[in-house]
Design a protein around this nucleic acid. Structure first.
Lengths: 191, 191, 191, 191
DNA sequence: AATGAATGAGGTTTCATTCAT
DNA sequence: TATGAATGAAACCTCATTCAT
C-alpha cells in the first residue's frame, strides 16, 4: 500500500491554498516554485496532482464556483425584495471570499487568450453555474435578468479590487436599492 | 524644434497600435518583440519612446482614458433620464472601443501587484477621470453615485469580453432601465 | 523456494515488455512511469526487480543478445555460401525482431557516455556474443571477418529503422550477394 | 545600425561548435546551458539563432550533410574500382569527421520519435543528399545500389563509435574489397 | 512484495531590457 | 535616432528515484 493520503482531500487543500495566493498576487505573478513553497510541497508533488499550472488554475476556478453555488443556496426569502436583500447581506458577510473569487475570475479571463476562453468548457460550465445560482436563489425565470444581476455584482466586486474609495457594503447597498426599484417597476419579471 | 511634434505624434501612434494588441491578446501575452514587429519599429526604438513596457502601458491607459473623457462629453440631455439614455446609446455606438478599454483596464489591474496599484498615481488619476466624466455628463453631484454607475458599466463591459450569451446592447438597455427606475424613486439624487 | 522461479519469470516478462516499448519509442523517450503503466506494475515494483532504469536496460540488451544467439544457432549449411543464404533468410524471417534489436542496441550506444560504453562489461559481453555467433554459424575463424559481417548486417538494420525506401529483404539480398562474391574471391578465408 | 554581425556566419560557427559537443557527448547529454557555456554565448543568443534545441540539431544535421556532399565530390577515378578505392581513402583520411557525422546522425534517429522521423522533411532531404552523393561519385545509376553502399559505410562508422576492436581503416579496407569483388561479378551494374 | 505519493535537481525556453554600432 | 543581437534571471515542467505505509 502507498503512503496513506486522501488524494481528493489533498487536491482540494492545495487548491484552497492556491486560491489565497492567486487572489493576493494574481495568477501570473505567482510562480510554481512560490506556490509549492507556500503550500509546503515539492514541485514534483504539485505536478503529481495537476498536470500544469493552467490546469490547476482551471480546477481552482471550477472548485470555487462550486463552493459559491453552495454558499448562494443559503439565500432565502418570501418575496423577491427579501431575497435580493438577503443576497446583498450574504455578499457583504462573505466580502473577502467573493472578492477573491472575482480576482481569480478575472485572472482566468486574462490568462487564456480571449478567443480561447470562449471554447474552454470549464469557463462555460462555471459561467453557467453562476447564472443558474442567480436564477435559483432569486427565483427569476428570465435567464437574461439572472445573468445581468451577476454581471452587476461582478462589476462591484472588481471595482473593489484595486480601489477602496467606496466601501463594498455601500456599493452593494446601492445595487440592492437599484434592483428593488427596477423590479418594483417591472412586476411581470417577478414571481 | 519641429521634431518634437513628430516625436509626440509617433508616441501616440505606437500607443494606439498597442491598444489593439493589448485588447486582443492581453498585456501579459504580448511580448515587446511582438509589439515592435506589429508596430513596425525596432525594440531599440520602442525603448527610445518608452522606458519600459510597464511605462508604455501606463501611458496607454492614461491616453485612452483621456480619449474616453472626450467621447463621454458628447452626452447631453435636458433630464437625467435623457442623459442616461444618451449615455447608453453612446456606449452601444462605440461598443468595440469601450470593450477594448475595459480589457486594457483589467489588464492594468492584473499586471500590477494588487497592493501596488493603490499607490500608483496613474491609476488614481485615470480612475478619477472616469468618475469625473460620469459626474459631469449625468450632472450627478454625489460622487458615490457617479462612481457606482461607472462600476456597473464596467461590469457589463467585462462580462462581454469573453462571453457572447447576451448582446451588449441588451445588457446596456437593462442597465439603462434599472438606472432610470432607481432615479425615479430617488428624486433627491437628481438635478 | 518456488518463489525464485516466479521472480525470475516476472523479471523476464518485464524485460520483454520493455523491449517493445524501447524499440517503439526509444530508451530516452520512455519514462519509468510509462513503463510501469504499460507493464501494469507500480514504480516500486519495478525498482524491486531492477535497481535503476539503466540496469534494466543493460539486462534487457543482455537478454535479447542471448535470445539472438539462440536464434542464430538455427543457421546451418554445408558450404559457406549456403550458410550465408540461410542467415539472410533467417534475418528476413525475423525482420521485426532484428529491427527492434538494432534500435535497442543503438539506444544503448546513445544512452551511455561514449567513453563510458567502452568500459561497460555488459556492452563488451554482448558485443562479443554477436561476434561469436557469427563466427560459429558461418564457421569463419578470422574474428575480424565475423565481426565485419555483423557490422554490415547492423548497418542494414539501422538503415531500415527510419526509412522504408528499400525493403529489408532487398538490402539483405544485396548483402548476401556481396558476401558470396567476396568469399568466392577469397577462398582462404573459407572453411 | 545594429551590432555588426554576420548572422549567417555566426549561425554556422555555432553549428560547428555544437557538432563537436554533440558528437562527443550525444545530443541528449548536452544541455543547452552547457552548449552556451562552451560556445561562449548566452542562452538568449542561442535562441536568437535557433528557435529550439531540436531545430538547432536539425539544422546541424543539414549543414553537416551539405559539407559531406562537398567532401565526397573530391572522389574521382577512371574506373569504378578506382573510385571505390578513392572513396575508402577519403573516409579513412577524414575518419574523425565521418565518425562524428555518424554519431550525430544516430542521435537524430534517436531524438525523433521513430514514426515522426519518416515525415521529417530535413531527414528525407539529408538522406537523399547522401544517396545522391554516392550515385554521383561512384557513377552508379541504380539508386538501390548507391543507397546500399552508404548503408554499409554507415554500418562501419557506427560500429567504430563505441568500439575499437578493429581499426576503421581495416574495416573500410574489407568493405572496399567486398565492393570490388561484388562489382567484378556484376559488370552490368558498372559504368 | 508491493504501492504510488513525494522529492528536487536540473532541463528547455522566454522575454524585458541593454548596448555596440 | 535607430537597429537588432545579445544578455541572463527566472519561468514552467520532467523524471529517475525514494520511502512511508
Amino acid at each position: 500500500m502507498p503512503k496513506i493520503v486522501d488524494v481528493e482531500q489533498q487536491r482540494k487543500e492545495i487548491l484552497f491554498k492556491c486560491f489565497d495566493l492567486f487572489a493576493e498576487k494574481g495568477y501570473a505573478n505567482v510562480t510554481t516554485r512560490q506556490l509549492c513553497q507556500e503550500i509546503g510541497i515539492s514541485t514534483g508533488a504539485l505536478y503529481h496532482y495537476f498536470s500544469s499550472k493552467k490546469i490547476l488554475f482551471e480546477q481552482l476556478v471550477d472548485e470555487i464556483s462550486r463552493q459559491d453555488a453552495l454558499l448562494l443556496k443559503e439565500v432565502v426569502g418570501n418575496t423577491l425584495e427579501e431575497r435580493i436583500r438577503t443576497l446583498g447581506q450574504l455578499l457583504i458577510q462573505h466580502e473577502e471570499h467573493f472578492l477573491k473569487q472575482a480576482i481569480v475570475w478575472i485572472n482566468f479571463y486574462q490568462h487564456n487568450d480571449l478567443q480561447e476562453i470562449q471554447v474552454n468548457p470549464i469557463f462555460q460550465q462555471v459561467d453557467d453555474r453562476y447564472q443558474q445560482s442567480m436564477s435559483d436563489l432569486l427565483e427569476i425565470e428570465e435567464p437574461k435578468i439572472a445573468r445581468f444581476i451577476w454581471t452587476l455584482i461582478n462589476g462591484v466586486l472588481i471595482e473593489q479590487v484595486g480601489n477602496a474609495k467606496i466601501s463594498f457594503a455601500d456599493q452593494i447597498d446601492l445595487l440592492t436599492q437599484m434592483l428593488i426599484a427596477y423590479f418594483a417597476q417591472n412586476k411581470t419579471a417577478i414571481h
